[in-house]
Design a protein around this nucleic acid. Structure first.
Lengths: 343, 343
DNA sequence: TTGAAAAATGCAATCGGTTGCAAAACTAGA
DNA sequence: TCTAGTTTTGCAACCGATTGCATTTTTCAA
């Protein structure tokens, strides 16, 4: 197959009788190049089909105008929307977006971090795998002054940007919402307590119970591995077969919550009368299930945009030693039919 | 902020008293380097924290071991799963994945194609924007021998790899499924007829009716712009208010189909008795809605993996002039509760 | 021991932009 | 017209890895 020779700034230089430096500067609107020259260069570049080689520029500058993303799973509503937000902001600023998924495994996360580093990303946006507990694989970025934004699932201690929601308050609000509906025995579908998001949601749940003088019943707090549909069904079955079943469930995600609704209905319980249920995330399924699932909003798109912004801004900043900088977004209870109206 | 100096092959060369060429070859397991040297080089590289610079290698080779993806929207179940499949295969082969979304606008698609080209992707995987009709922006890739895989939404004529399902047959099967359930007045939610997927689904629908001697009623074929929930509601309302409303709907996607179920129920029709409904894609919501939505499977993950494979294989191939090479995947009717059992 | 073939390694150019500094060209006031 | 200052442009090194070809080293049969 014949491959057309690509046009480089050297070709442009020859054509226009300028030096490559001038061409390069003209294309980048360098202030020391006259407007006349800039115009001429750009027009010619357009005409002859010149295309910049990002690899060359990236090599010279040791960064690639690329944001790396490291998430557990790409095909989840929250994550794919988060990425959509990142992509939108990045693209507007002329940045590319490299993606990778860890499948919630620390080992893969580590490998992917390496690869993204090797591609000299300008910044990294990470949502941690379920079981990641060591953060050494992020040090390579920090050492090179490459900004990292942890989003949603963040490490407790690592020094960097973070974009999160207030999971504690969200958990508190969700639980309080159930209490205000008259629920007294509230179960909780808890995610991995290694991850801040699930840990905090649970804490909010516990504190809401305490504040309303409801007992904490450990048998009502179900530890989940992945908060999957199947796990949700199993847990619901178990709960509803108890001698004294709960009258409500606060699930740490929507998937498990929806499975609880379906399972409860199948077992003859009515939702929300016998069992009120509230989820977390406002996934698309939460609007579709019947009764529609009350849940907690999760501003994925916005979190994505802010994460990207942090990286892009970082380029401008004076690189003092990087301090932790946390953005906390608002969430709210979305009351639908799966919980009882507030008294 | 202090930035640690990065280790290059030159540093390794100095340390080990070899030339950079030998280091490079050793790291790449070149056959002309002794196993002893390879071992030594690799161990030292590991020890001193050497990290390859993909930009440098990419510049030299004029390609970046990166697959570019161009899709309409990232946060849709089909697309995000497709990408997940691409990412998985690409990663295994040591390739990175660059993403971009066109928001279904040809103009953005063109701009993104440029950017991906400028990053010297090794291959491009595209699902076309709704209104794209000119394909000039793909020529730059073809001219450079960069393989393009069109997936799902593909151009009719462009010469390249294609990974699709048989939309015609799928549309035919979906319609036939309704007919076999006893439906006689079957409406169709049709997508943009510029895109093969929607055009072919409609053709399958039309032919199924014809073959079963059912009349084609143009008033039952509703043209959609985006097949959104809102559009679906509106269309359903309109249909059910007709003097002689349809007894079934074949929707070209699940979103509109689900909205039809909900809308029909709200209007007092029972599904599937009064109105049978079948969708397309097997999105997560289709399992959740009640009655559960019958639909057509869409092997997103597999399509992603195959698309990536096409790109990766292409690298090996003798680059004869690229011919069109089409992979057609199987789909099947997933019968759930929103359609009537087959007689 | 010698010579030729085979194996291992090195030289130097190359990929395409970017940029500090020097130099040239231009402007304007004296 | 001359000079100092300003604007514009060029020189050349550099980023880090790859690779064709030449050279050195090793191997082994004669």
């Amino acid at each position: 197959m014949e491959v057309k020779k690509e046009v480089t700034i050297y070709d442009l230089a020859k054509t226009l009788n300028y030096s490559p430096s001038t061409i390069s500067r003209a294309l980048n609107n360098h202030k020391s190049i006259s407007k006349k020259t800039i115009k001429l260069v750009k027009e010619t570049a357009e005409k002859v089909g010149y295309r910049p080689n990002n690899l060359a520029a990236g090599l010279r500058n040791n960064k690639s105008k690329t944001i790396g993303i490291l998430v557990p799973h790409l095909n989840r509503p929250f994550v794919s929307t988060l990425i959509s937000g990142i992509e939108e902001s990045a693209r507007k600023a002329g940045y590319n977006v490299l993606i990778s998924q860890s499948y919630d495994e620390a080992e893969i996360e580590i490998a992917n971090a390496r690869t993204l580093y090797d591609s000299r990303v300008s910044g990294l946006i990470v949502s941690l795998a379920m079981q990641t507990e060591l953060y050494d694989h992020f040090k390579q970025f920090t050492d090179q002054g490459i900004p990292i934004v942890f989003v949603d699932r963040v490490p407790k201690t690592y020094n960097s940007y973070k974009v999160i929601i207030d999971n504690y308050t969200a958990g508190y609000k969700a639980t309080k919402h159930l209490i205000q509906g008259g629920c007294k025995r509230i179960a909780h579908f808890a995610g991995s307590q290694h991850r801040n998001v699930y840990e905090d949601r649970k804490k909010g749940y516990v504190d809401a119970l305490k504040e309303h003088n409801l007992p904490i019943d450990e048998s009502l707090i179900i530890p989940f591995k992945t908060l999957s549909f199947e796990e949700g069904e199993k847990a619901t079955k178990k709960l509803l077969k108890m001698e004294q079943p709960p009258d409500a469930i606060f699930s740490a995600n929507d998937t498990a919550a929806v499975s609880a609704i379906l399972c409860a209905k199948k077992m003859g319980f009515s939702v929300p009368e016998d069992l009120a249920i509230i989820g977390f995330n406002d996934d698309p399924i939460s609007k579709i299930v019947e009764p529609a699932l009350s849940t907690i909003s999760h501003p994925a798109l916005k979190m994505g945009k802010i994460s990207a912004k942090r990286i892009l801004e970082h380029e401008q900043k004076e690189q003092d030693d990087l301090l932790t900088e946390v953005s906390v977004l608002n969430t709210e209870v979305i009351a639908r039919a799966s919980t009882r109206p507030i008294n």
